[in-house]
Design a protein around this nucleic acid. Structure first.
Length: 448
RNA sequence: GCCCGGGUAGUGUAGUGGCCUAUCAUGAGGCCCUGUCGAGGCUUCGACUCGGGUUCAAAUCCCGACCCGGGCGCCA
């Protein structure tokens, strides 16, 4: 059983052993001046070559940073010296050599190479400048996203995105949430408003999911109590702004035996803990982006819809338009909630106040720049839910799979959905939401 | 979809009727240079989105198409 032997072999390997079997022995950050005299193999991209005639410097870039490889004429093999001078930037190389402590070198050390392999040549000219000397338009950058991601700034954004996701998962995990995955190919719309992307599902009509709303609610009937999902949602709206995308990453939670107030606390604590985590773990990245994070204080301000429209200068029953959103944002100037929305402008599945059915237990989480999340206490009575669906002019037949879950013991529950890209965009003060997603899908962009 | 602005070397820009065989930076090619770190010096290469029109003359003005940016709308 050769496979079994391999598996056993794998299991006893330490990290060190594994590394010995890889092309490189060290990432740039793993080398210090104290490694003076040590043999290392480093690998990465040729960031720059500075050829001074008698001495040449190759700046090698890997995931973690830069390493200077120094070649002095007469001290290294002449073939190697000439090879280095001829390599096109952004080519992929493997360098074996000795670490030398050197105060004149950028990190206090440099590599004196004994061998250099060009693993893959890069064509020239490059589609955009990686070093940061010349800027490029977002459109140009997105066309060559792989190259754009080699730039420090872009990479910083996506490393922070990784840490934001980690922080969210850790927080929800510690709060008793179970991660789930729900279908992205669906048969019906979740709610009335937003447009859906139709797709062909064998001989049936189907759509890309606009929200996991219905499925996460069904999970409340499954008795999981607290669930969350981080996944894509699709909206076929023809919007063309710096804060909308047609494919978004949504962070959704749903929890049983709680009120909308409870999930609002969870949401504000999650935002706060995400900011803290990023502040602690992404110092370098924040520095690259020139962002100084202020960790928001909880509880966030609660603003009623009535107060919000008063500041925004709009009529009762209207949703906040861009101008109103801006006015309120400027006035509050930190994260806040808008609560107690008119029932008629929110979806059917939101619970109304018993004494005032014209307003409902919905909330939006706002950053001064824009909305970043919305949620509510849900209707959990089958009878009431059916009436609300009909009242919104929707056909209950399409919701049969959903309504069934409310017939056999559905607990009271509440939840919310948070736009990951908007969280990132507001956190890092990015001016376009497309900066916060690797391969944005918008009205005109379907590739790469 | 509407309003406004724009499209110039691989990239980012200057140029609003003749001074444009088009500026600057970056890059690429060649030469010089033994401590660069946005290396430097000399040198060469490389572009007016497309189609139509006005004019003696168009990168520049007009019309149309396509594309891009900003604002708004749509949208939770």
């Amino acid at each position: 059983m050769p496979e079994q032997r391999d598996l056993r072999h794998m299991r006893i390997r330490s990290r060190r052993d594994l590394k010995d079997n890889m092309l490189r022995t060290h990432y740039s950050r793993e080398i210090t001046p104290d490694d003076d005299g040590k043999n290392v193999v480093i690998a990465g991209w040729v960031h720059e070559i500075r050829d001074l005639g008698g001495i040449a410097f190759l700046v090698l870039r890997d995931r973690d940073g830069f390493v200077q490889v120094t070649l002095s004429k007469g001290k290294v093999d002449e073939k190697l010296f000439n090879l280095v001078r001829s390599i096109a930037r952004e080519s992929v190389v493997l360098v074996s050599g000795v670490v030398k402590r050197e105060d004149k070198a950028p990190n206090g050390y440099e590599i004196i190479p004994s061998e250099l392999q060009v693993l893959n040549k890069a064509e020239s000219p490059l589609p955009l400048d990686v070093t940061g000397k010349v800027s490029a338009d977002l459109d140009t950058r997105l066309d060559s996203r792989f190259m754009d991601l080699r730039r420090q700034r872009t990479q910083a954004i996506f490393r922070i995105r990784h840490h934001v996701l980690r922080a969210i998962r850790t927080f929800l995990e510690n709060s008793g949430f179970v991660e789930i995955n729900t279908p992205k190919i669906v048969a019906t719309a979740t709610e009335g408003g937003t447009a859906l992307f139709p797709i062909t599902y064998f001989e049936q009509e189907a759509f890309l999911s606009q929200s996991p709303q219905l499925y996460k609610q069904i999970m409340m009937a499954a008795g999981l109590d607290r669930v969350y999902e981080i996944g894509p949602i699709f909206r076929a709206e023809e919007h063309d702004t710096t804060k909308h995308l047609n494919e978004v990453s949504s962070v959704d939670i749903e929890a049983s035996f709680v009120t909308h107030e409870d999930v609002m606390s969870i949401l504000e604590l999650l935002v706060k803990s995400t900011y803290s985590h990023v502040t602690e773990r992404c110092k370098h990245e924040l520095d690259v982006l020139g962002v100084r994070l202020k960790i928001p204080k909880v509880p966030f301000k609660r603003l009623s819809y009535d107060e919000a429209i008063d500041i925004g200068g709009i009529e009762w029953g209207d949703d906040l338009d861009t101008a109103a959103e801006k006015l309120v944002g400027e006035k509050i100037s930190e994260h806040y909630f808008i609560v107690d929305w008119p029932t008629e402008i929110k979806p059917y599945y939101i619970e109304t106040y018993e004494d005032r059915p014209e307003i409902c237990k919905a909330f939006d989480l706002m950053h001064p720049r824009m909305e970043i999340a919305s949620g509510a206490q849900r209707v959990h009575s089958h009878e009431l839910l059916l009436r609300r669906i009909e009242a919104q002019g929707l056909n209950p037949e399409g919701f049969e799979f959903y309504l069934r879950a409310f017939k056999y013991g559905m607990p009271p529950h509440a939840g919310w959905g948070l736009g990951l890209e908007r969280l990132l965009m507001t956190m890092l003060d990015l001016n376009n939401i497309r900066e916060a997603i690797l391969f944005p899908r918008d009205r005109r962009r379907l590739s790469p």
